[in-house]
Every structure is written in C-alpha cells, then in structure tokens.
Design a binder for these strands. Structure first.
Lengths: 249, 249
DNA sequence: TTATTGCATTGATCTATATCAAGTGGCGAC
DNA sequence: GTCGCCACTTGATATAGATCAATGCAATAA
C-alpha cells in the first residue's frame, strides 16, 4: 500500500518524459497496427509532422462531445475509450470500444461535427490527426488515403457484425462473441489472448450488447460456474476458448 | 389484365435502349446524390470511362454473394437492394437497404472478398465501379478519394444509429424510426416523402429491425388504427408525420 | 374460372430477459 | 480505521415481444 504511493511520481515522470520525447511513428510500438502501415519512410516523416501527440486523459474524461466541431481524428496510443450516441430522450448506446492503434471519430468525416461522444475508460493517451492536414497530405500520398479508407471500411464491417449480434443473438451468445472479440484484439496487440482487464464497467458492456447489467452479471457467474471463464473484478481469464467459440453462434 | 401483358415488351425495349445508350454521369438524374458530386467536368469524363453500366437485376437476384471476390463497388441506379450477413448456424441479419445513388460493398474494401450478400428487391440496375480502377483514378483525383471516404463515413454513421435502434428502442419506436428514415431518403431522391412503396417484404423489415414478422404486422395495423399511416399491401402513406416523429424517441 | 403458393394478418400462449428489490464487497475520503 | 458510496451480484417477479397456430388474401399458374 505504501509502495503504490511511492512509485506514482515515477510513473508520472515516465509519462512526462514520453510526452516530451514525442515518440515518432517510426519508433512507435503500434507501428504495425496503425495508420503508417504501408507508407514509405519518407512519407512517415511527413505524417509525423502533422500528428499532435496529446497529453493523457484520465478515466472518465471526455475526448470529444456530441456536436463538438469535427477537427481531428484520434488514434488510441495507450489505454481505452468508449463512444456513445444518444436518443433525444437521453437513452444512450455504447457504440464501440477503442484500443491502441484504433481510430476514433471516423463516423464524423462526412459532417462538420462529431456524431458521438468519446470518453476514456482508464488513463489513456491519443495521437491527434487534424483532418484538414491529413487530407492535404493524403492528396500527395495516395497510400495514406487508401489506408484511411481501409480503416473506415473495417469499422463498418465490424459494425455490421454487431448488428447481427444485437438483432439475432441470445444473451449468452452476445457475451461470448464480445469476449472473444476482445481476446482477438488483445492478441493482435501482443497481449495475452486468455487473460486481460475489462477496462469498461459491467454496465458499459451490458449497454453495448443490448442487455441489462443484471443479465451480464448473471452470465459472468454462469460462465464461471460452467468453467468457461475465471473472473475476479475486472480481470478475466478465458479458461475454455473452444467451448466459448461454440457458444457464439 | 390484358393491358399489362401488352406493355411488358415496351418496358423491356426501354430498358434495352437505356442500356445501349450507356447514359453518362453528366446526364444522370442521380448526379447530385452520387459519387460525381464535387468533381470537375473533365474528371467526370475519366470517371465515366471506368464505370460499367450493368444489365438489370430481377427481383430476388443476387448482386454478389458472401465470400465472392471483391472486385467492384456498386451504385444503385434504379430499384433497390438489401444486404445480409449470417451467423455460422444460418441465422441472417438484414444489415441495410440501398436505394438509387447509394453505394453497395463499402464494407468489403478492407478485405479481398465481400463480407455480405446483396440481393435485388425489385427489378433494379446498378453502376459497377471496379475498385482497382477507382483507386488508380483516385490517386490522381483527390476529390474523388474524399468523396469515397465521405460515403463510407456516412454509412458508418447510419449504422451507429441503427445500433441505437437495435439496442435501445421499443418495437414501435423501431418501426417509426425506420419509416421516417425511408421517407427522408425518398424525399432526397425527389419522390414523395409521404407515400411510397415498401419494396422489401414484411419479414425483411422485421429482420432488419430485430423483430418478428408478426410484430411488424401488428404494428402496421396499430399504426393504421391510430391514424399514423394508411397501408395497403406494399404501398404506405404517412398520414401523421408529427406524431410519427414523436414516436421515434 | 379455379387451384396453388407464398406472404401477410390476427389470435393465444410462452419465455427470455427486463425490472424491481435487497444485499455484498471494495475503495477512496476523511 | 470506518464511513459512505458506487459497482456489482443475486433473487423474485413482470412483461414485451417471440413463438405457435390458424386463417386470409393476392398473384401466378392451370
């Protein structure tokens, strides 16, 4: 307990140093997942020039709000975010979760304001890509433009799958599908596919899957009883991936 | 009854003539809704060169199938289409309906095969845009590339709204939202916003909204009883748009 | 004209999941 | 430490909408 307090300043120092150092794309660990993929070294230097590496965001802090002017796309550098849209009466839907290397704000490109709200789920940081600059650069670097198009298409594809989940799947199929999708994304990022942190709350998960919190809670308990997972607070281990896959439908 | 048979050959003739004439983008009535928007006249000529104006598709005919090689994007020229994705056990979700000027296949850009199946809902025709050619041209015409990006972003945005609908709305809110969305799209295309044809079946609508056919049928009846709509087979009139909007949530 | 077929409607019943209600446990503030 | 708060869990009950079942109806074929 005393130890935690002692290292906090150290962590802050590291964050500050990292920020001052302004890590460039070439050296970034997300290189293989992120926008630069397929760009030449010279192009990267140009891309680096327009990227703003922002200060961090605390848990619960808003990256952008519904109807804010659309200025920039964001790429998660560390941590995680959720985006939500809301009905006129205030009901909200968690539309997506975003992890390192993923783009936030792509659905705003066709408007001049954001169509959703983005909030950090933990201490997080992002790279900011002012869209106008990105477009200017894109007109010189077709490969960049293609990368961007590919990104939006990929998110579109994911959203269609989520429509299948929301429209046709039962509660246990929903949760199983969700957990495996998280697992895959962590694996792609070089983390364990079997054990990871659920940085979002139960109610975020429930909302995203079109379920009630209580249902999600009961499902976690049942999955645990059936030996599918081991869960303790926010830490989850997938103990029977086979069976989990069979559950997805 | 005899009359219908007599004019059928005439209609076919017109379709054939239209096809042979190979109507160009400049002259197309969809000009203001379609890809050419914002392109210069010279650019349009180039775009026209890569567009294949295909034969028509009959009701129920497949434009492309899941896992077909991704070669082209398609723009609806006349008629309408639906796209579906399916779970491993065969359950299907109708992900979108497409009307003239709208793009089909955008979710395949990030893969080398289509992620969904597209089927004509009535006699329809499309413009085919071979994606490789489109990209070659795009690298010379940044405005074209931006148009394309904008299109995908717009579809993304619509899908997020549908997630809100599927996850959070009640059955009557779902149907009301859907009918008004159709109404707006018809209006944008210069058709009546109040009276139009539901080219898709009740079961397509139900599936798309995450409901059972019976529920949709009952809702249509109730909406009619409440003076919101008048419906006869596939023809619907919105008789109280105000009240309908209030129902959307 | 009458049969056939598939889509659509309407009614009766059932069920998955929401909602309501009552704890439980962990964590930060003091 | 312990107080208070909030997220989570677990149980009891309610309900929106699904499913099952029968019938109606319109378009095509015979």
């Amino acid at each position: 307990m005393v130890g935690t307090k002692d290292i906090k300043p150290l962590i802050d120092d590291i964050a500050r140093l990292e920020h001052e150092h302004q890590l460039e794309c070439q050296d970034c660990s997300l290189y293989r997942l992120c926008l630069p993929l397929g760009l030449h070294r010279d192009d990267l230097v140009q891309l680096d020039k327009i990227i703003k590496r922002s200060q961090g965001y605390d848990k619960g802090q808003t990256l952008f709000n519904l109807k804010d002017d659309f200025i920039s796309l964001y790429v998660v550098r560390s941590g995680s975010f959720k985006t939500t849209i809301s009905a006129s009466d205030g009901r909200e839907q968690v539309t997506s979760f975003y992890f390192p290397g993923e783009f936030i704000g792509l659905d705003a490109i066709h408007m001049d304001s954001y169509q959703s709200k983005a909030v950090a789920l933990e201490s997080s940081s992002v790279c900011e890509l002012p869209f106008d600059n990105l477009q200017d650069l894109g007109s010189e670097l077709p490969r960049l433009q293609v990368q961007l198009l590919t990104r939006v298409s990929k998110e579109l594809s994911g959203d269609k799958s989520l429509m299948l989940l929301l429209g046709k799947k039962t509660s246990d199929e929903k949760l199983a599908t969700y957990l495996l999708s998280l697992s895959k994304r962590f694996k792609d990022r070089g983390f364990s596919a079997k054990e990871f942190q659920l940085t979002m709350s139960r109610s975020d998960i429930a909302n995203h899957l079109g379920l009630a919190v209580e249902t999600v809670s009961r499902l976690f308990s049942r999955f645990q009883d059936n030996g599918l997972i081991a869960i303790k607070g926010k830490t989850i281990s997938l103990t029977d991936v086979e069976k989990m896959q069979a559950l997805c439908g």
